[in-house]
Design a binder for these strands. Sequence first.
DNA 1: ATGAAAGCGCTAACAA
DNA 2: TTGTTAGCGCTTTCAT
Lengths: 334, 334
Amino acid sequence: MRVRQRDIAQAAGVSQASVSLVVSGRASEGGISPSTQDRIRTAMEELGYRPDPVARSLRGGRSGLVGVFTYEPVFPARPDEYFHEFLVGIEMAAADRGQDLVLFSSTQQADGRRSIYAGGSSRLQHADGSVILGMHRDDDELARLAKDEYPFVSVGRYDPVPEAAWVEVDYDGAVRAIIEDFHRAGHRAIAYVAGDNARLPSLARRHAFAASTRGDTTQILTETEFDENTLGTWRDSGITAVIAENPDIAEKVERAAARAGLRVPDDFSAACLDTPLRSGRSASWSHLLIPKREVGIRSVNLLAAILDGKLPRGHHDSVQCASHHLGTIAAERV
Amino acid sequence: MRVRQRDIAQAAGVSQASVSLVVSGRASEGGISPSTQDRIRTAMEELGYRPDPVARSLRGGRSGLVGVFTYEPVFPARPDEYFHEFLVGIEMAAADRGQDLVLFSSTQQADGRRSIYAGGSSRLQHADGSVILGMHRDDDELARLAKDEYPFVSVGRYDPVPEAAWVEVDYDGAVRAIIEDFHRAGHRAIAYVAGDNARLPSLARRHAFAASTRGDTTQILTETEFDENTLGTWRDSGITAVIAENPDIAEKVERAAARAGLRVPDDFSAACLDTPLRSGRSASWSHLLIPKREVGIRSVNLLAAILDGKLPRGHHDSVQCASHHLGTIAAERV
DNA sequence: ATGAAAGCGCTAACAA
DNA sequence: TTGTTAGCGCTTTCAT
């Protein structure tokens, strides 16, 4: 049996409106005498009144629920480090703001893929707005979401939908900084090993690399193109430094180098564009520190600002990216 | 601008009730002529109608939201393997059932602890029911939740609140099986190193140990009581086998043994009551396989059954626990 | 076969 | 200082 404001109004011999004022803490402001307030509070206590958040949402238009939409399960079989840190930030920010998180597991279809509009009505409506996470996006769906004027923020740059708001990592600046380190150390012939997927985050980093190495000798290849012969090719082309786009690639390069009897940084300098695996052989590579937690926090905050009308729907935010030097960028012997 | 049923009723020249029937799919059942249905559907399409889930829940329907309440952040700074696998199961089951998950981050207070009723209103009401996770529970709050007739299921046995539903791991059977293995190998003097917290899951395992070793020589001590001298004490007491309650303890025992020049299983047999750390020294210990994922799945299913009135509020479910033998239980030399 | 009306629990104008 | 009223968007009798 739910206790409503009406019940305690009756018990305290006041109107429901007065109860509402007390509940929302605006009693004095609304001009309720201290004695009446006391009576109301006592009645609330005795009857065990708890405001109904759903009714509040209906009335106020906000549920305080922040959606988290991912095209993959949030809790994968193998804890995916990549997602995790974003989610830490998202949960922290939500907690700070007094908001709850909704994970849209219902959007998962039989084949394991998730779709916003598959179930007919968008379940995202349950949340005031959503944070969109993950690589494998459906541009059409998200475009539609934007057209429906549903407030959402993409974690990571998201060009395909012009109206989308996002929080991006400043890969440009970060990659540029790493290249400058290479330059300072005398390297002018640099290889870049990219991931196989041609998704935005990957492309962004490749472009940043290309832009920062104008005038240098460069070689860009993808993960699958990297094989046993690659190291030889590099040596022949005079390549003295390597950038691996992600930790897996760094591992791959390290293993190939080890087999070829080459050492980092004695034989070539190296850096990785994300934090390497803790226990891997490339753990000591110089690398970028992607501020995932910060990005998560800012995404939630940006969403809140958009909901409050303080920032426009398509606002973008960018987070600086630090780098962590572990001595795998050595001076080039000229 | 939200499009309401009223708007499309007007557009289609029908009453709001008819629209509602079409929306909920009970149009024919309610006796709406096919032609009218078509007109309504067209209007919905044109105006871009989306049902408001909040209004629906207020009216008494289901929101399709399953709460996940934890007394600690769901996404901890250091990924906590213990939680993770439960959540994998919970998300899988929710996806299967077409339900979404709500993580109650809003209940987090300044000190980092979470409380259901701290904010005055219980935000759990946003979900049809909730799964309760984590060790550090507030019995009073949960008792109150039960009194409020809020449907919830505890992950893990939860005696303190009699009305609580739960899904437990059959530690009794599992511990008994391990002890029987020890017995078969001839061990009759067994030590047990428990965790420091005296929480239920820990107590349950200790009791199971005590119950299964009647007539044996046993020694039960807690993690902090275990020190450099313990191994000597065990040898003096004729202890030939050890059970570690959790992976951390197993590690501790292994390290102490290594320092003392003792080997498992040559010098003593050993088993751990949870899966040991992958990269730890005790990785090869025989151990229990706690079916966390299964427990997560069943929790969600049990909650659904309770919501549907198919199972009573305080129903309990128990999941068998397998064990994995890695040869650290050796025959005792008699 | 369709419509009118009540009400879920709450808040915010507006009256008194 | 307090009470009355009108909804928020929806579902569900009960009339028509």
